[in-house]
Amino acid sequence: MISTLRDICREVGAAYLLLLHVGTLLLRGRFDRRELGRSLAAMGADSLPIVALTAFFTGGIMVIQAGIFVRRFGAYGLLGFGAGYATLREVGPLLIGLMFSGRVGANNAAELGTMTVTEQIDGLRALAIDPIAFLIVPRVLAMVIALFCLLLVGDAVALSGGALFGKWLLGVEFSSFFHSFADNLKLADLSVGLVKAAVFGLAIAISSCHFGSSVRGGAPGVGRAVNAAVVASALAIVLSDQLITVLFK
């Protein structure tokens, strides 16, 4: 028990030090722009189809769940507000964050882990290149930007999905759905979701980069690192979600 607690403290401490190091290099502008572009394409653009698909059905699920109460109380005019509120503030960032963690965070931990065990990180250091400036900082920045942008797109797709399912299942007109949404929701509701996306992106980036770059023990070590990165990311997402929700309620 004490040993497990000590291990957790060590990992959290190391991830925190990595965050400080990344922040310092970022403020000094010391990172590889080409790697940032490559990471943005791989982590952002390539994630768009799966995020859009998830978001579309998330919007649909919100409407199906809300449908029971909408029918019972005849609150057809509140469907857009209900689905939009839950999507923008909570379900959108949470589901897209977890999807991003599974797709991008796990891939990033595996890639960095493989680079570590095949001496590619040492290869960079031997060429007088700081691996954190060259590999880690661009990836952290790319993950934060990518998740932020993916959430903007995801929110729009989820609301469109909600409107489509609302019309199909409950007969709510598109205009009624979007008026209910626009009249009752504020920019702050969207902003809370976007703050969450940026924080989730940072949490996924730091945990996947930390576990990926500290791999020991060949291929099994890479597997353990991916597992640890995904678990730590999910935990960080849930904890930070709780904190942000309390702060911005």
Binding site: T118, E119, D122, A126
Partner: peptide, 20 residues
């Protein structure tokens, strides 16, 4: 150390080629 490494070339046992 970074300065010194600029004058050193190293071939690694596992080659350490950048996959990407």
């Amino acid at each position: 150390l970074q300065q010194s490494r600029k004058h050193i070339g190293m071939l690694f046992q596992n080659n350490a080629l950048f996959d990407f």
